[in-house]
Simulated assay, not measured.
Amino acid sequence: MDELQGREGVWRFDGETVSLHYRTGWRADPFLAELGRCDVPVAALSSAEFTPSRLRGKSWQLRLRLHDRVDPFSAVGAGLNGRSHPFVLTGAPQRELLAEYYADQFTAAAQAARGAAPSPAPEQLAVRLVPPLPLHVQTSEGTAFFDGETVRLVWSGWAADSAKRKQQRREFALPEIRSVEWVPSDGWVEGHLRILTHDSGGSPSAKPDKDPHCLVTGSSRREEARMLLMAATVTAHLRAREADSRRAAALPAPDLGAPAGEKTVYDRIRELGRLRDEGLLTEEEFQAKKTELLDRL
């Protein structure tokens, strides 16, 4: 297995997976150190982008470009910068030719993967990028726990508001969750993780320290990094669930004969319409599958 060393860590490539191993220690970036490792299948890659050192000053940059809806970190990482981005590697000029070679290899592998046998939906690939479950994060306010089925917020820390401490905990089953919001500290206000449910409407009006959908983080960069990982992990599993729903809706309807078979086709079209209205199918996907089903009549 070949490897490329950079400032953020070491990237290894075996032809099917790009394994990103991040540096640890007190000088390492907190987010990358907490993530530790990320294995990116080539099926998740759109391309690799190389920027030589002469255009960046003192170092080259190699960036992996992923397919849409694959990257759960960017989906929630409002505070990610170039240094903390998990799919960026920079390095000294002496490894520049090797980095450019790797960029070509990654792009070629990604193109070959697109022409190979059907791969999982992009959203299903996202779960391979996040930490394994169960995932547990502790802050001064309490803890957040995710096991793949339920997100549990527990307010047991010394910094928890009295109302939250009285309630003790709140659990959210994955089907209830619309999205996860992660907001880092701005230096004045502490960061937080917020669970947005399908029945919660718009953005909650309550402040994070009063909101039972929130767990507040402290000002520690390590603590914020762990909370970002939690938000990204839940987001990845939400997206995988959406992909599973689309796949189930797209499965051929059982042939029950006419007229019962015709009724089944129309019921399936109504189900597809519901998924489109909920944002789980695009208009193009809905129309294509609707045409396919009607052609069976």
Rank of each mutant, 00 (worst) to 15 (best):
L133N: 02
E100Y: 02
V127N: 01
T90F: 15
T107H: 01
E100M: 08
T90V: 12
D104H: 15
V130N: 03
A108W: 07
A113L: 06
P118E: 10
P131D: 12
Q94H: 14
Y101E: 11
Q94E: 14
L98D: 07
P93M: 15
R128V: 07
L129T: 00
A121C: 08
L98E: 10
A92C: 12
T90E: 13
L129V: 01
L98W: 02
V130G: 02
A109L: 13
Q94V: 13
Q105A: 14
R95T: 13
E96L: 08
E96Q: 13
P120I: 11
Q111R: 11
Q105L: 15
R95W: 14
G91I: 09
E100V: 01
A121Q: 07
A110N: 03
A117R: 13
L125T: 05
L89I: 11
Y101N: 11
E100C: 04
A103F: 14
G91F: 10
A110L: 09
A113H: 04
A108S: 10
Y101F: 12
A112G: 03
A112I: 09
Q124I: 04
L133R: 01
Y102S: 05
L89H: 02
Q124H: 09
Y102V: 07
A121E: 10
A108T: 06
L133T: 03
E100R: 12
A110V: 08
P120D: 11
L129K: 00
G115L: 12
Y101C: 13
D104I: 15
L98K: 04
A121D: 11
L89A: 08
P132R: 10
A116M: 05
E123F: 02
P122L: 07
E100N: 07
R114A: 09
L133V: 04
P131I: 12
A126I: 01
D104P: 00
A126C: 01
P131K: 08
P122W: 08
A103R: 04
T107R: 02
G115V: 05
R114N: 04
A110S: 09
L129C: 00
A126V: 02
A92T: 10
